[in-house]
């Protein structure tokens, strides 16, 4: 690993000023589970490494009925899945967090890191898409809020500009009863990247669907959702939904799966996730 200067600012303000001062030479260190490997392999070679874990405001989970759930940037995936409020109100998020890496990795990895890293296969991305999460960003020019479906811009690319950091992720409240499901297909049950990930949220007659690992960015399947809106769901509609979801993504062949297998699994998981979210009460 190349030498660098390690900085540990204790406020957001100081962090922004360090990032503005050093520009391209600086890199944020959060959980480090991807970054340290990339630094070891000399893919990323920062001159200044800015550890944001000493900033108290970034380490909180808050929840209330009006504003929903807010998860600070340095909160780890295990802290999220152990949180009572998340377990009570957003079990879909607990499920997704638990499918990322190993227990050891989840003690370090964060939700903010998982989305900033912007892997198409990020397990937390499809649930955040169907929950219509908002990403809270601060930079030299002030604060902004970006809807999660505008956050990803390409494979391992996001909308952040140099000097900007994600401070937290907000999940707005959902009115009325709803059920969320995240299904992941990997090569093995534990500790693997997703071959296909599908998240579904059902709210009354609305169905939201998002898919991971099947396009350059995690995708919200708006057209398929439109197809299902207000309809009574039966076997033929489920089949249509699976085929429709396929038209909204662009799966490829890679080390984890062939394109054909992915296409098949997309159809299966979309169908299964809708069924599960509807409590299996259809057909």
């Amino acid at each position: 690993m190349k030498e660098f200067e390690y900085l540990k600012p204790d406020s957001i303000k100081k962090t922004i000023s360090i990032l503005s001062q050093f520009g391209e030479k600086a890199q944020i260190l959060n959980g480090g589970t991807d970054l340290i490997v990339e630094m070891r392999d000399k893919i990323i070679q920062p001159e200044y490494l800015v550890d944001i874990k000493a900033i108290p405001q970034l380490n909180r989970i808050t929840y209330n009925k009006q504003d929903g759930l807010n998860i600070g940037a340095t909160v780890t995936l295990n802290e999220i899945s152990n949180s009572k409020v998340v377990q009570t109100h957003y079990p879909i998020l607990v499920k997704a967090c638990k499918t990322v890496g190993s227990y050891q990795v989840r003690n370090r990895a964060t939700l903010a890191g998982n989305i900033c890293n912007a892997s198409p296969a990020a397990d937390t991305a499809p649930p955040l898409l169907v929950l219509e999460a908002k990403v809270n960003i601060i930079g030299p020019t002030g604060e902004k809020i970006v809807p999660i479906n505008q956050f990803f811009t390409g494979v391992k690319k996001n909308i952040l500009k140099k000097g900007e950091i994600v401070t937290s992720i907000t999940i707005p409240p959902i009115k009325g009863k709803w059920v969320g499901v995240y299904l992941k297909q990997g090569r093995k049950k534990e500790v693997d990247l997703a071959t296909v990930g599908v998240a579904v949220v059902c709210i009354r007659d609305e169905v939201r669907i998002a898919l991971g690992a099947v396009a350059p960015v995690p995708v919200r399947a708006f057209k398929t959702e439109e197809l299902l809106k207000g309809k009574t769901i039966d076997e033929s509609l489920l089949e249509k939904a699976g085929r429709s979801a396929l038209t909204e993504v662009s799966p490829i062949s890679d080390v984890r799966s062939s394109q054909e297998y992915r296409e098949e699994i997309i159809k299966v998981l979309v169908r299964r996730a809708i069924l599960q979210a509807k409590g299996g009460h259809i057909l």
Partner: peptide, 9 residues
């Protein structure tokens, strides 16, 4: 908490 010491500085 268990962590991978290779992933931590």
């Amino acid at each position: 908490k268990p962590v991978n010491s290779c992933l931590m500085l």
